[in-house]
């Protein structure tokens, strides 16, 4: 018997749910075409897929015969299928990780992933665009401190541009330009204001 389980409020992933009521849909209920949810009668279009599963076939040393293949550096009974492109160690199909156009062993993958050198394994990073925006806004609110917040906004804006280039993003650039123009203007205005307060223009 199918039981509706409300899962919309949970942050963890709970599998395929009805997009209207959040009831869990078992694999057998995934249909292609116009679908009506049996729990809430909500209508939606759906396309079901059956993703193919790749099974790693591990060749044993014993299969390759004498002198047939080197052993994997981690699994001495498995025949090596490739070399790690970073450290050169032999690795079997169990150890091999194909990522960012490279075949890596688990330890090199871990290391490069920790260093942030693998773009496809990045999980969290700084929001420099947000920081630039906040600095620019703080400069407007506290005009006397604009000569500090303005350059900070420009600094983070430059970092945000660099980040966008590295990630291959094209959106949000106009907003960044506007933030940087605002930062330059508030910096100038802040300096003029402080100079005026100290009587430089008298």
């Amino acid at each position: 018997m199918a039981v509706a389980i409300k899962g919309r409020r949970h942050s963890s992933y709970e599998g395929v749910l009805c997009p209207h009521c959040g009831a869990r849909l078992p694999q057998s209920r995934l249909e292609t075409g116009e679908v009506v949810c049996t729990f809430c009668n909500g209508q939606y279009e759906g396309v079901a897929f059956t993703p193919p599963v790749r099974k790693a076939r591990v060749k044993h040393i014993a299969e390759s015969g004498p002198g047939g293949s080197a052993a994997c550096a981690r699994h001495e009974r498995n025949a090596a299928a490739a070399n790690c492109e970073r450290c050169g160690n032999f690795m079997c199909n169990l150890c091999r990780i194909d990522t960012d156009g490279m075949a890596l062993c688990p330890s090199c993958f871990e290391r490069l992933s920790d260093e942030g050198a693998l773009p496809s394994s990045l999980k969290s990073f700084k929001n420099y665009s947000g920081m630039a925006g906040s600095m620019a806004a703080a400069g407007i609110l506290l005009l006397l401190l604009a000569p500090i917040f303005g350059p900070a906004a420009i600094f983070y804006g430059v970092k945000a541009f660099k980040q966008k280039r590295e990630m291959g993003e094209r959106d949000g650039k106009i907003m960044l330009y506007l933030i940087m123009i605002l930062a330059v203007l508030e910096t100038i205005f802040g300096i003029v204001l402080i100079a005026a307060l100290f009587g430089v223009f008298r």
Binding site: P19, F49, S124, K126, N127
Partner: peptide
Amino acid sequence: EFDQYDIVRKRVFFDDVLFVTYHRY
């Protein structure tokens, strides 16, 4: 996902997809 000044990234790979839906609310 923007969380203050951090961005947390999640991924859905095309070879992992089970179901795609289109609805209005």
